[in-house]
Design a protein around this nucleic acid. Sequence first.
DNA 1: TATATTTATCGTAAGTTAACGATATATATT
DNA 2: AATATATATCGTTAACTTACGATAAATATA
Lengths: 107, 107
Amino acid sequence: MMITSVSINDSSIRRSAEIAKALGHPARIAILKILAERTTCFCGDITEILPLAQSTVSQHLKALKSAGLITGEVEGVRTCYCLNPDGIKELQSLLSELSNELVQTCC
Amino acid sequence: MMITSVSINDSSIRRSAEIAKALGHPARIAILKILAERTTCFCGDITEILPLAQSTVSQHLKALKSAGLITGEVEGVRTCYCLNPDGIKELQSLLSELSNELVQTCC
DNA sequence: TATATTTATCGTAAGTTAACGATATATATT
DNA sequence: AATATATATCGTTAACTTACGATAAATATA
């Protein structure tokens, strides 16, 4: 087993935590799933599906966007939100890397 | 593509969010990595490695334990913390399931 | 031009989180 | 029995999160 020195300030650890934090609320996971199964993806569509106020949905969208997991393109009066393939890939690689590192039998 | 109705109250979504939330702080990811690369795993060991007070580390350990990602066995005056294989497996399966669901091209 | 629509942002309240030092508890050791 | 050690918990403070309604800004429609 490779011995690495683990630091809170490691950028990969920080990025993984940032992504995990973005996933750390059921509404945000639900939003990602909704985006994955629809081709149109406006804030209003999501507000119709989830039992949350429009402003709350907008806030969750902002959190997902700033974590790099989704993009938002203004289209006239609306904004079309989409999964960000790069962010999703990063999610997959960082979290699967983490999973691999956590395979162990202890004590 | 299968159309599923996405709900905030779906238990799998809630559990995924719970796990992600537990991973949503660099200190907690660091702790999991430390547990993975050591065979002894007392609170004091972790406190020596991370730049955090003992009480703060204990608090993070409690969060990881209540999310089911680690176990803690009292051994005399100390407590031996270990990765919880079941929790780690759950982490892997829920998050990889989520990853798979998020493969898509949008808009 | 006036009105309607969509969404971001503001303001606010309640709740949670993260950090710390101090302390209690439980077990070892002398 | 007295002392030392390890850790959980308490109390506190500051910061952040989540939710909401109200409103502003931007665009579309009548």
